[in-house]
Amino acid sequence: MTRAASSESPVARRILIGVGLLFLALFLALPLVVVFVQAFAKGWPMFVDAIGQPDARAAIRLTLLVAAISVPLNCVFGVVASWAITKFDFRGKSLLISLIDLPFSVSPVVAGLIFVLMFGAQGWFGPWLIAHNWKVIFAVPGIVLATVFVTFPFVAREIIPLMAEQGRDDEEAAVSLGASGWQTFWHVTLPNIRWGLLYGVLLCNARAMGEFGAVSVVSGHIRGLTNTMPLHVEILYNEYDFVGAFAVASLLASLALVTLVLKSLLEWRFGYHQARSAH
C-alpha cells in the first residue's frame, strides 16, 4: 500500500516520461541526428576517409592527451575542495564556492584571453618565457591550461551538494571509532560520493574534449600540431568539407557514449549501491 502512494500512477508516470522524452527529442536528439545524418551523408567510406586523415588523427590524439591531463587534475582538486568545504566550517564559505563556480560564468572567449594576457608575447610572463625558449601559449601547455580552467568546477560542483546532503555523521562516527583522516576518507567518504564523483568526471571529461571557445584562442590552429578535435571541426566546416566536419563531430559525440558504457560497466561490476539509508 505504501508502494502505491510512494510512486505515481502508471498513467502519470507515462505522461511524465512522454513529456521528458519529447523535450529531449526536440532540443537534444534532433541536433544530434543532424550531426550524424551529415556525417554519413556521403556514405560510410567517406566517413572513414574523413576520420583517417592524418590531420584528423593528430587532432584526436591531441584531444585525448589534453583530456587525460586535465580531467585527473580537476578530479583530485574537486574531491579535495568539496571535502574542505562540506566537512569544515569557516567564514567566507559561500565566497569560496562562488569562486570555484566562476569559470562557468566566464565567457569562453575571455577564458582564452586571460591566458594570452598572462603568457602571450605581450603578456606578463611572455618575455621571460621567450627568453627561456618555453612555449605555453599556442602549444600544448596553453591548451591544457585553458581546458583545466574551463572544466575546473565540474567535479567539485557535482560532489558538494551530495556531500552537503549527506552531512558529516558518517565521518564523525568513523573518527570516533579511531579511524585516521585518510582511512575515513577512503572507506567512508569516497564510497558515499562515488556516483556523484563519477558523474562529475564524466561531465568534466565530456567538456574537456568538447571545449571550443577558450581553446580556440590559445591554440594557434596549426594543422596537425595544435588543432584539437573541436577546432578541427570548425576548420573543416569553414573549408566546406561538411562530411569531414560532421564526421569528426560525431566521433566526439560518440566518445561521450563510450564514457557512458564505461560507467554502466562499473555499475555492473560493483553492483549499484542505492544510497545509504542512514538519513
Partner: peptide
C-alpha cells in the same frame, strides 16, 4: 542517460 551529456561533448560551434 548518455545523451544528456552530449551538449558538453559537442563542440559549441557544431
Amino acid at each position: 542517460d548518455a545523451a544528456v551529456d552530449l551538449p558538453f561533448a559537442l563542440p559549441t560551434a557544431v
